[in-house]
Amino acid sequence: MTAIDSGSGPSGVRPLAGRRALITGASRGIGADIARAYAAAGADLVLTARDADPLQQAARRLADEHGVRTAVLAADLGEADVADRLWDEASTLLEGPGPLDVLVNNAGISHPETVDRLDTAHFDQTLRVNLRAPALLAARAGAAMAEHGGGAIVTIASAAALRPLAEHYAYSTAKAGLVMATRTLALELGPRGVRANSICPTVVLTDMGQTVWGDQPEKAAPMLARIPQSRFAQPREVSDVAVWLASDAASMVNGAEIPVDGGYLIS
């Protein structure tokens, strides 16, 4: 199911004006805030998640508020062939020269559990959604971008990709693999104009993050004690970095892992 909206919104110089971006997991949390930030920066958007209804509402709102084109594409990253189908269809939804200019690989899931209680089905699902699908999607997107002069791939990874986190065995494994996949794309496709970088946040206070961490002081306290800034991240602090990485201001940034963690990784 697809839908396209175009609205009249603020004009002027915006860092992503004229660019077209695919954002996965865009119906809520970090993905929804990145969609807001990209629209405000002038990018036309293809928003994808499993459920099209909240995406369509968001797409209409962003089009009206920011004067950008928006398209919606429902997709389940757990499906075997989703990467090829998603990129091919997304590339047809917004008219323009060549493929889309930016991919934001944001969608992900987590099943917190200790290693001794590891569920095989949870492990397999986490690797399908958090590693297999985004890595294949990024490879497909990066190859298409390289054929048409370049583009940007922004991977929303995690501090758990760089520092192990208890009860996140599958999640940390998948995110670490995705970071390495992003580095490899940067190495192979950088000479052809494609930049690929990862953002590695600590806990982000989305609605879900607030429920799991912000509303449970006893659980949050040990984690906060390891963050020198003594707080968790806000979605906007991730989104601002995602905008920068897709813009010309980051034209020499390739193959990087950028922590948005208040110093967690150095503590």
Rank of each mutant, 00 (worst) to 15 (best):
G98I: 03
N106F: 11
S110G: 07
P54R: 00
L100N: 03
E89M: 06
R61L: 14
G67V: 02
A107E: 05
A59V: 13
A59M: 11
G98H: 03
T92V: 04
E79M: 07
R69F: 01
R61I: 13
L94C: 11
E113L: 10
A58E: 10
A59G: 15
V102R: 13
L73F: 03
L94V: 00
Q56H: 12
N106L: 10
T114M: 11
L55Q: 06
V82H: 02
V104Q: 08
V115N: 02
L77I: 13
D76I: 07
A90F: 03
D64S: 15
E95M: 15
T114S: 12
L77A: 00
R61C: 13
V104H: 14
V68E: 04
Q56G: 12
E113C: 08
P99Y: 02
L94H: 00
E79N: 12
G108S: 05
A107G: 06
E113P: 09
V104D: 09
P112Y: 04
V68N: 06
E113I: 11
R61G: 14
N106M: 10
L62P: 06
W87N: 00
L100E: 10
H66F: 15
E79H: 11
D53S: 13
N106A: 05
L86N: 02
E79G: 03
Q57L: 14
I109P: 04
L55M: 08
E89V: 03
S91L: 11
D53Q: 12
G98W: 02
A90W: 02
L62I: 12
V82D: 00
V104R: 07
A83H: 02
E79D: 13
G98T: 07
L77T: 03
D81V: 10
E89T: 06
D64L: 13
A83I: 09
V115W: 01
A80N: 08
I109V: 12
A107W: 08
D84V: 13
D76S: 04
R61E: 14
D88T: 13
S110V: 10
W87L: 09
D76W: 14
T114D: 08
A71K: 05
P97S: 15
P112V: 08
E95I: 14
P97V: 12
Q56E: 14
L86E: 01
L86S: 03
H111P: 05
N106P: 06
A74K: 03
V115Q: 07
